[in-house]
Nucleic acid binder design. Structure first.
Lengths: 126, 126
DNA sequence: ATTATTGTATTAATTATATAGTACAAATAT
DNA sequence: ATATTTGTACTATATAATTAATACAATAAT
């Protein structure tokens, strides 16, 4: 379970801070597959925000297939593998990488610099 | 010279579409160093937007040291090398990498898969 | 010097975003 | 069956972002 914290000073909206902390929780292994998240009400009380703010965060993650919400029972880390064929997966990854590199190039960064940065990112996650 | 086009359907604001097209124009070599861009008025007429919308795009690129504006004479692609401190560069690359990883992660890709794909991309370039 | 051309500044109106208040609907537990 | 617990939907409000209308200021051309 995560210890959720909101910081109003950062400027990033509350619902996005919640999203980030869940994503990071999954990436770092603090949140396990199938685990139940706090209910929208309990987390809303804990963070002193409206329950819709929590619901919005959960909703966006559900659309991204990261969470699984069931009205009446709760919200869970999605068990299901994302259903993509290997071909679709390959196409998708090429697609987003190409788009990303276009942006990176327009800022004058090289592939090596980018890869290096991502590897750093990788180390900090673990 | 670029053939500027605005698409209201995409949802990305006009001034940002203009920024992107200039950035890509430079990255792809369509815009040369020192070249003059259309005046804020002429581009505004061409794109059927207010001149302030164009001015806003130019302004942001000027702040980023990509354009060079001179009241009375016009706006030009900056001759000077882009002066980014190592700190600014670091911040920028972290910024775009973080955004990219969020997207990649939402598709279920791991950092290793992404790095691998980018390395492939790299090989095909050379 | 004067005029035309260029970017800038100020203000207003519109639109989008973020959060909250409250009522609803589905699932579960009893 | 009914009450409780869960997420959802709808509405309102405040704030920020986007675009526009219009006047201003600096430069260049004559």
């Amino acid at each position: 379970m995560i210890n959720f914290v909101l910081d109003p000073k950062t400027g990033t909206p509350f619902y996005r801070q919640i999203i980030d902390q869940i994503r990071f929780g999954i990436a770092s292994g603090k949140l396990e597959i199938g685990e139940q998240l706090p209910t929208v009400r309990s987390l809303a009380v804990e963070l002193k925000v409206n329950l819709n703010t929590v619901a919005k965060a959960y909703k966006e993650l559900e659309i991204q297939n990261i969470l699984d919400t069931h009205q009446g029972s709760g919200t869970f880390i999605n068990k299901n593998e994302i259903i993509l064929t290997e071909k679709e997966k390959q196409a998708k990854i090429q697609d987003i990488c190409r788009e990303f590199m276009t942006i990176a190039f327009s800022y004058g960064f090289t592939i090596d610099e980018i890869i290096h940065e991502l590897q750093n990112h990788n180390q900090h996650e673990n």
